[in-house]
């Protein structure tokens, strides 16, 4: 008993973990917290680049009031939600299906896997450029081959609201399905083979094996993948910026691209910051909901 109380007050060892996470915390504070705090701060001011921030007039909650009544913000929010729905639904389905197909050792599986992962390695700016020229109305391959093979009239892919929306959804699926694929296939390969074998012995057919055995077992992985894609949908702007710039109209202007256009095209930095605060709130809300529904980290730490 007394021995414990006589323990030295300062034990260097206890601080070691903190010393090791210190650099990470500093970087997070500087790189993450500071911009977020500044975004909050800016959203209460009417600042333009080229003037001193200190001289910017304080406008209190004006930007937020304006935002709530701004049909453009609701329009781009709706575009973002539609974009998220189509891309994530299709990407999850395709990604999981591909992973299940290539899970078993088939001939050339490794080649297929490499090919499927390639789009993920291309920088978003390059993806935007590649697809912008593929979809180009005048010189694009897509129009050319649609005409040569199917006799379809050239379409102005990126100049028509519906077609442009389709084009960015298509591009996103091309780029991000591999992400789901790679995560799911890693999860599937980590499954204990006994469980799968046991289900086979119990007479489960392929359908039961997938939907009642395999997928439920990788549920936490699917949730993480879904969460990351959802956040990406609200965060991503490079591809749209390059392919369409948000146009025609606002048909491909996702929330973050709208913020960018507001901030830099029309120089309303304060207002753009207010919309960023909305973006942070939405992403925070979505993450919280999903993580409360199924928290992969929690279940692991309980073990």
């Amino acid at each position: 008993m007394s021995e414990i109380s006589q323990k030295p007050r300062f034990e260097p060892g206890a601080f070691t973990p903190y010393a090791f996470i210190m650099p990470a915390i500093v970087v997070m504070m500087g790189g993450l917290l500071y911009p977020v705090v500044m975004a909050f701060y800016l959203s209460f001011y009417d600042w333009e680049i080229g003037r001193k921030l200190a001289d910017a007039p304080f406008v209190s909650f004006d930007h937020f009031v304006r935002m709530v009544a701004d049909p453009q913000v609701w329009e781009v929010l709706w575009v973002t939600i539609r974009f998220g729905f189509w891309t994530i639904t299709i990407e999850m389905t395709l990604g999981v299906a591909l992973a299940l197909l290539l899970e078993k050792p088939i001939r050339g599986a490794s080649i297929f896997r490499t090919i499927f992962i390639l789009p993920l390695m291309v920088s978003p700016v390059v993806v935007g450029l590649i697809w912008r020229y593929l979809f180009d109305a005048r010189i694009g391959w897509i129009n050319y081959y649609l005409g040569v093979w199917f006799g379809i009239e050239p379409q102005v892919w990126l100049g028509d609201p519906q077609l442009a929306f389709f084009a960015i959804v298509f591009t996103d699926i091309w780029q991000w399905t591999p992400f789901i694929f790679i995560i799911v296939i890693a999860g599937l390969q980590a499954l204990p083979s006994e469980v799968v074998e046991a289900s086979t012995i119990d007479g489960a057919n392929w359908y039961q094996q997938i939907f009642l055995v395999k997928l439920p077992m990788i549920k936490s992985i699917l949730v993480i993948a879904l969460l990351m894609r959802l956040i990406d949908v609200f965060r991503g702007l490079e591809v749209m910026l390059i392919m369409t710039g948000g146009g025609p109209g606002r048909s491909t202007e996702l929330l973050s691209l709208h913020i960018y256009n507001r901030a830099f095209d029309t120089q309303q930095l304060g207002y753009a910051s207010a919309i960023s605060v909305l973006l942070i709130a939405i992403v925070f809300g979505i993450s919280t909901v999903i993580l409360t529904m199924a928290n992969p980290m929690k279940s692991k730490s309980d073990v």
Binding site: D136, R138, L158, G159
Partner: peptide, 12 residues
């Protein structure tokens, strides 16, 4: 005009 005007900037 030529196809694609709604996507044209000055360069295009």
């Amino acid at each position: 005009g030529p196809k694609g005007i709604p996507t044209f900037g000055f360069g295009e």
